[in-house]
């Protein structure tokens, strides 16, 4: 195994890593907003349901969540059938390995994002909404034209953090043998006794996160024209 062959194989794993990252982000960003609305809801049952959900998701390891989503349906019984068999029989919905990881990741990250959104939205002084109201603006005009950009500016640093964590969390997919970047490197260690690919993939993550950091810094700079 030369450098070139190793790189090719690692790129296969890296592709999975990137897809998992991108799909999780694309789904969890809007889903998180929905969740945050739930936990800020004036309808108490929904609020408490959401709070409990947030507590469970944030209070258990993502790795455990991945395992449960993948193995759970095969272990729980519905009558004589397992849940997985039941699901396949009635409409063919059973997650494969990658889908299980993706599902667990989307839910987990949406919950973390929702808490960041909530913090951002609640940190905007009530005076901003009141100013909008006395100027005859509707609630949605006040939110979209006045509050939203201030929220984005405030949540950018914690969101950057969370998104960088997501890059590295993708490696948890290996726990149910999804062939992402770390798993790909491990295979080379197991099959050919090569250690250096493990260091090599470190560089993949560093570059990936480095590029994201540059992007976030650009965004922060773009929003630095105002304060508040």
């Amino acid at each position: 195994m030369g450098f070139y062959e190793v790189t090719l194989q690692l790129l296969e794993g890296f592709k999975t890593t990137c897809i998992l990252f991108a799909l999780t982000l694309a789904a969890a960003l809007p889903l998180g907003l929905l969740f945050s609305m739930g936990s800020m809801s004036k309808f108490k049952p929904l609020k408490w349901l959401m709070k409990t959900f947030v507590w469970i998701i944030r209070g258990t390891p993502l790795m455990l969540q991945v395992i449960i989503v993948f193995y759970g349906p095969g272990l729980v019984h519905v009558g004589d059938l397992t849940l997985r068999e039941f699901l396949v029989l009635h409409g063919g919905m059973a997650f494969d390995r990658f889908q299980s990881v993706l599902f667990a990741f989307i839910i987990n990250y949406a919950v973390y994002f929702s808490e960041i959104y909530r913090g951002g939205i609640e940190s905007i002084p009530v005076g901003q909404y009141e100013a909008g109201q006395v100027l005859g603006m509707t609630r949605s005009q006040t939110f979209f034209r006045v509050v939203l950009l201030q929220v984005i500016k405030r949540i950018l640093p914690p969101m950057s953090n969370e998104i960088l964590t997501l890059v590295k969390d993708t490696s948890l997919a290996r726990v149910i043998t999804v062939l992402e970047l770390v798993k790909a490197a491990e295979q080379m260690t197991a099959q050919y006794g090569l250690i250096w690919p493990l260091f090599y993939i470190g560089a993949f993550y560093l570059v990936f996160c480095g590029l994201l950091t540059i992007l976030f810094n650009l965004l922060e700079k773009k929003l630095s024209y105002f304060r508040g």
């Binding site: 002084p125 901003q128 009141e130 100013a131 201030q150 024209y225 105002f226 304060r227």
Partner: peptide
């Protein structure tokens, strides 16, 4: 406290 919109 004025409540001006900071981004405008």
């Amino acid at each position: 406290s004025f409540n001006l919109f900071p981004q405008y």
